[in-house]
Write a protein that binds this DNA or RNA. Structure first.
Lengths: 116, 116
DNA sequence: ATATCATTTCGTCAACTATCGAAATGTAAT
DNA sequence: ATTACATTTCGATAGTTGACGAAATGATAT
């Protein structure tokens, strides 16, 4: 059974611009926390918190990759909801802000930014 | 152009359980503020604020009806977005909480509750 | 075993949100 | 004109959120 509280939690996860930016760049490829931190220009701990909110609303998943933690869009077949939100975003986000992030995703390199 | 802030505002409007309840009951029929207040059991001023948030995110519209102000789901042809959210809600909200509200909508009467 | 280092958790602070009651507003009925 | 009254706006308050840096965690590589 889905309560109003459950639904509001899902929308709350989407109600922060930084979290929308994260979802948008994860459309392009898997990213680790330090790469997302570099793109958004926020403190690592802040990004980590945003990721945990997106994850507990079931929009993204995580997986270990060597010393990094990769995050990626939830691709479970069951989750048509995530797919719907992501494609809505694709439709909406034809703007400069988003394009700049998408460019950064192409050049960002975890080996350069994480290791000093 | 739609920014991340624009989109987050829309989701923020949907991120409160009381506002979702309001949208759900407005699916059934137009309601005035005092009727919504009676159903949600909140202060009138609180309901009025929720309505203004839903309105500025363009989910609902208002119209004067005698001494009352009716609120109703945005039915402008252009707003496919609202229609999509509302039908998503129809799908999700097959629960007791929602059914109780929907029952109340049938019996609530502005003449009885507003005039003392 | 130890050191390294990416990530998470914790504590703190400022900003924002939901709530209420009281006062203001504006319209409808007398 | 005046009264009644539905709704909105205002001011105060408690709770929540987003941000950071510091400390804790835990896995990898030496």
């Amino acid at each position: 059974m889905t309560t109003y509280k459950d639904i509001s939690k899902i929308y709350k996860a989407l109600s922060d611009p930084h979290r929308l930016r994260i979802l948008n760049i994860l459309r392009l490829r898997k990213l680790c926390v330090c790469e997302i931190t570099e793109i958004l220009n926020l403190a690592t701990s802040t990004v980590s918190k945003h990721l945990s909110i997106l994850q507990s609303a079931d929009f993204i998943q995580q997986e270990k990759d060597g010393k990094w933690m990769n995050y990626f869009i939830n691709n479970r077949a069951s989750d048509a909801r995530t797919a719907a939100f992501v494609s809505a975003m694709e439709f909406w986000l034809n703007n400069e802000e988003a394009k700049a992030d998408e460019q950064k995703v192409k050049t960002v390199n975890r080996d350069k930014i994480c290791s000093t």
